[in-house]
C-alpha cells in the first residue's frame, strides 16, 4: 500500500496534473479571497469556502481521472494485480495519494486564516468547521472519482463521468429544495433526501456544528465507494 501511495503521489508532481490542479485552484480561490475578504474587508471565510465547494465539483475529476484509468491504459495494472499485494491495499494507496494532494491544497489555503488573524479576528468555530467540512466532502468526492476511474481505461471518460456524478448529486439537492419549499413532496421523501444529502451535512459542519453522525456519514460514503472499487476490480478478473 505504501509503495503505491508513494508512487502515485510522486506521479502527480512528475506529470503536469498535480501542478494544474493546485494552480487552477489557488489562482481562482485566491482571487476570490482577495475580492471577498481583502476588498470587502470581511473576516468571514464562509463565502470563499462555499465557492470552493463549487470549484471542487469541477476540479476533483482532474485529480482522480488518472487513478486507475492510466494504469489500465499503460497495462501497469498487470504489475499491480500480479504482485503479492491485496487489492484493497492498492485501492487505499491510490485513494490516499489523491487525498494527500487535496490536503496539500488545503494546507496552502491556511494562508487565508493567517492573513485574517494579522488584520482582524477569525471566527474560530467557523474556520475549523469549514476546514473539517471541506475535508469531508473532498474525501467523499475523491472516493467517488476513484470509483469512476476504476470503471474505464479512458481518462476523459473518467473525468466527465465523475463530473456528471457530482453535478447530478448537486442538482438533486437543488431540485429537492425547490420541491420542499413548494410543499410538493411528502415529508418522508424530504427527510430521506436530507439524510443522504452531502451538501446539507456540509452546511451543518461548516457552521461549526460538529455532530458525530455527520462524520460517520462521510466516512461511510468513502468506505462504500472504495468497497465498490475493490469489488469492481475483482469482477474485472472474471470478465
Amino acid at each position: 500500500m505504501l509503495a503505491v501511495f508513494k508512487r502515485d503521489f510522486k506521479a502527480y508532481f512528475t506529470s503536469a496534473i498535480g501542478y494544474i490542479y493546485l494552480g487552477a485552484y489557488i489562482l481562482v480561490l485566491n482571487l476570490l479571497f482577495y475580492l471577498n475578504n481583502a476588498l470587502g474587508a470581511s473576516p468571514s471565510l464562509s463565502g470563499v469556502f462555499s465557492f470552493m465547494l463549487m470549484v471542487m465539483m469541477f476540479v476533483t475529476p482532474i485529480l482522480t481521472m488518472r487513478v486507475f484509468s492510466e494504469d489500465f491504459k499503460q497495462k501497469t495494472d498487470q504489475l499491480l494485480f500480479t504482485s503479492p499485494v491485496k487489492l484493497s491495499g492498492i485501492v487505499m494507496g491510490k485513494y490516499l495519494s489523491s487525498f494527500a494532494v487535496f490536503v496539500c491544497l488545503l494546507l496552502l489555503t491556511l494562508l487565508w486564516p493567517f492573513a485574517i488573524s494579522v488584520f482582524g479576528e477569525n471566527n474560530t468555530a467557523e474556520v475549523v468547521g469549514n476546514y473539517i467540512g471541506i475535508l469531508c466532502i473532498g474525501a467523499a468526492y475523491i472516493a467517488m472519482g476513484v470509483f469512476i476511474s476504476s470503471l474505464t481505461e479512458n481518462q476523459v471518460v473518467a473525468a466527465v463521468g465523475s463530473l456528471g456524478l457530482f453535478v447530478a448529486l448537486y442538482i438533486l439537492e437543488v431540485v429537492a429544495l425547490i420541491f420542499y419549499q413548494s410543499g410538493a413532496l411528502p415529508m418522508l421523501v424530504m427527510r430521506s433526501l436530507r439524510f443522504i444529502s452531502i451538501y446539507g451535512r456540509y452546511n451543518d459542519i461548516s457552521r461549526g456544528v460538529l455532530a458525530l453522525d455527520d462524520i460517520v456519514y462521510f466516512l461511510s460514503v468513502c468506505a462504500i465507494f472504495l468497497f465498490l472499487t475493490v469489488r469492481g476490480l475483482e469482477k474485472r478478473r472474471w470478465a
Partner: peptide, 21 residues
C-alpha cells in the same frame, strides 16, 4: 511490459521492489 513511462528505470525498479515487499 507494465511500465510507468514517466519514471526513471531506477525509480521504477525501486517501486517494483517495494510493491513486491
Amino acid at each position: 511490459p507494465p511500465l510507468y513511462h514517466a519514471m526513471t528505470v531506477e525509480e521504477y525498479l525501486d517501486f517494483a521492489y517495494e510493491l513486491k515487499g
